[in-house]
């Protein structure tokens, strides 16, 4: 895994979305998007595990992981480009996958805005956009 892509002092408020486009490496197994306040306080950890055909979502509070939410939906292909949109609704996050499928995850920490994003693993960010 290469060093992680990291964005700080971002300002994603309720009702806003972040669209991220990137490319999965040819042997991609795993990547994650982490959205929250910092590397240790994460509201949404979105982690597709290609080899397990599973998307794991979780949150992290003071560097401690909380309870996982798993979905058996997998639509990522190694070597392909992918576009993912994350909408922050206040109560929850709505993640729209490249095939249109949506996964929601609760805003467990009641954050009013997200200021931190990191992308780890086998996904290379090419562009992103606020809406």
């Amino acid at each position: 895994m290469s060093e992680q892509f990291e964005l700080v002092n971002l300002e994603l408020k309720r009702g806003e979305s972040l669209k991220i486009k990137g490319a999965l490496s040819g042997n991609a197994k795993n990547f994650s998007f982490n959205l929250g306040k910092s590397a240790t306080d994460i509201g949404l950890h979105f982690n597709p595990r290609l080899h397990e055909n599973t998307i794991v979502c979780n949150s992290k509070r003071s560097n401690n992981w909380e309870s996982e939410q798993r979905s058996g939906h997998m639509c990522f292909t190694p070597g392909a480009e992918a576009k993912i949109s994350i909408k922050f609704n206040g109560d929850n996050f709505e993640v729209k996958l490249p095939d249109g499928h949506e996964i929601t995850f609760p805003n467990r920490h009641g954050y009013d805005k997200m200021t931190y994003l990191s992308v780890k693993g086998d996904f290379k960010v090419k562009s992103f956009k606020y809406e």
Binding site: E3, Q4, F5, V8, N9
Partner: peptide, 8 residues
């Protein structure tokens, strides 16, 4: 303080 992006 504006946005800071690392490791692109």
């Amino acid at each position: 303080a504006g946005i800071v992006m690392n490791n692109f």
